[in-house]
Computed example of a mutant assay.
Amino acid sequence: MTNALSRMMETRDWILADGATGTNLFNMGLSSGDAPEMWNEEHPDRIEKLYTMAVDAGSDLFLTNSFGGNASRLKLHGAEKRARELSRISAEIGREVADRRDRPVIVAGSVGPTGEIMAPMGSLTHELAVEIFHEQADGLKEGGADVLWLETISAPEEYKAAAEAFRLADMPWCGTMSFDTAGRTMMGLTSADMADMVEKLDTPPLAYGANCGVGASDLMRTVLGFVAQGTGRPIIAKGNAGIPKYVDGHIHYDGTPELMAEYAVLARDAGATIIGGCCGTMPEHLSKMREALETRERGERPTLDQITEALGAFSSAVDGTEEDSDQQSARRGRGGRRRRG
């Protein structure tokens, strides 16, 4: 499929994505509990600023302000009938920002989880999930998004439903999951499980990977897990800027711009193609990441020890892919097990 992101990946060794949406919008005045997507209509100037800050800092790709823009999430704010409209507006603003540049910039239509539990554990059926994702995908497509960007998914069933919806919308897509429970997603998926699932989809993503989670170290360990599967599909790394801490009544991420620069280079050397930040990642982080990627030569694939030395300790001793508990102690390195191969 010929599309802007595929063309960019054919000619680039790495692509810098954007940083945080929520963190930056909170700094602009968004209140906790409010729907950021409503700002697409109420404060389009602030959303334009959000996108512009990322591009000015060096991002080649930015996500639209539509993470919670599906009908299920917007129902919490009485706006479930506006899912397509609000997603369209988020992409329209992004299209204007990207088209003003004298270099290629990818507008990625952000699609987050529904917030519901998929059947049979919950009440959300596959058919309804596909309908919800399809509606949002159509809005983002109408607004001019180059690619759809599924993110922060925990359940494989939801990932598969989104893939089907994006096929119906006839849009290229990328998709990340969040590995935040000892190397697994909240619903128990490991990096190896995800890599296997992605290759079995009828319409697989252009690139896949991990976002958010716990911290940059844990995300790097997950990236190595993807690489170990050897699929050859481009990998996405979009880690948080350090670990969240509660300081003076606010959530603060302790990752410095210098730490995120180290993370960006390690992610590239580990095998990731699309590299960005998630929660806590500000323009100053992105600028340092861009500078490091441009000026530092590619190195060998990092070891677990090199990752923890540069980025800090892992949050768990295991990465979720252990064969069984009896083998864990034999396979652990410092802060995690040694990888097969």
Rank of each mutant, 00 (worst) to 15 (best):
L5E: 01
R7N: 15
M8V: 11
M9S: 07
A17T: 06
N24F: 15
N24L: 12
G33A: 06
H43K: 15
I47G: 00
V55N: 03
L63P: 05
N65K: 05
N65I: 07
F67Q: 01
R73G: 01
H77D: 09
G78A: 03
A79V: 10
R84M: 09
I93T: 03
G94K: 02
G94Q: 03
A98V: 00
A98N: 02
P104C: 05
M118D: 08
P120N: 01
S123Q: 12
H126F: 13
L140Y: 00
G143M: 07
V147E: 10
T152I: 05
T152L: 00
K160N: 14
L168H: 11
S178A: 14
T181C: 14
A182S: 15
R184V: 13
M186D: 11
D193C: 05
E199G: 12
E199H: 13
A207E: 01
A210S: 10
A210T: 09
V223G: 03
G232T: 01
I243Y: 04
I243E: 02
H252D: 10
L259V: 09
E262M: 15
V265G: 07
D269H: 07
T273A: 12
C278M: 04
C279I: 06
E294H: 08
E297F: 11
R301T: 11
T303A: 08
I307F: 10
E309T: 15
A313Y: 12
F314Y: 11
S315M: 12
A317Y: 14
E322P: 04
E322C: 10
E323K: 10
D326C: 13
S329N: 15
G341Y: 11
